[in-house]
């Protein structure tokens, strides 16, 4: 069973590299959004340093949102999802494989590029490592919660906007504790507690996503 899981995850990752790679577009969007802030609020260095962590997190959430509708849409339209539903792997596992592929193709590139944007925003030196840790702990939750949203809107023709409305409020806890964790590390007040809460959010979404998203996909296939 496990090799089917990897087979599907690998296939999704490969598809996102074909024809106008999703990853590069998401990363480009991420960079552009962050670059807009210095242009909008002015090049004053202290101001940029103060808002840098929040801006990077918000931009990461928005970029993550951008590729969510790809998780199920193409598979639903070409009938692949029907075959998955009939296959030997339970839909719950299919959903996790898809969320994993989304994390690898979207969240991981965002994490890798975020230090560069930190420099651009004049972020405090002490914030770089904590930012990466916080994103590593929190980003799986973004992909997992996003998968639920994608499964709920899969049968709608233009579900993109609705998807954003559904999912963004659910991203708020990740944003709050993500920013809190990095800022606490910088100020030396201990960023571990918020980091652990981020981990808890990820684990919680890992526990509910398979059931919720699989149920939604079943409804969509009916």
């Amino acid at each position: 069973m496990m090799h089917l899981f990897w087979l599907m995850a690998k296939r999704d990752i490969k598809i996102s590299w074909h024809g106008g790679s999703t990853s590069s577009m998401v990363v480009a969007f991420f960079i552009i959004v962050v670059t807009l802030f210095p242009l909008g609020v002015g090049p004053e260095q202290n101001m940029l340093a103060r808002i840098s962590i929040g801006v990077i997190w918000v931009a990461a959430l928005l970029s993550c949102l951008l590729s969510l509708d790809r998780i199920f849409q193409a598979d639903y339209e070409d009938g692949t999802l029907d075959q998955y539903a009939l296959g030997p792997l339970s839909l719950e596992m299919v959903v996790i494989a898809k969320a994993l592929a989304h994390w690898v193709t979207t969240s991981l590139p965002l994490i890798l590029i975020s230090p560069l944007l930190g420099i651009l925003m004049n972020m405090d030196d002490r914030a770089f490592l904590p930012l990466i840790y916080a994103m590593l702990a929190g980003s799986p939750a973004l992909s997992l919660i996003g998968t639920i949203g994608a499964s709920l809107t899969v049968s709608l023709k233009r579900g993109g906007v609705l998807l954003s409305l559904l999912i963004l409020p659910l991203y708020v806890p990740v944003l709050i504790f993500g920013v809190m964790s990095v800022e606490a590390s910088v100020m030396g007040t201990g960023g571990n507690a918020p980091l652990l809460i981020l981990g808890a959010i990820t684990l919680f979404s890992l526990a509910i996503t398979p059931w919720a998203a699989a149920a939604a996909v079943r409804l969509a296939l009916d």
């Binding site: 598809i15 024809g19 339209e77 070409d78 009938g79 029907d82």
Partner: peptide, 14 residues
Amino acid sequence: ITYLGHKNALKREF
């Protein structure tokens, strides 16, 4: 059971 519907379940990229 194997099932072939109207949709082909093929990826255009591959």
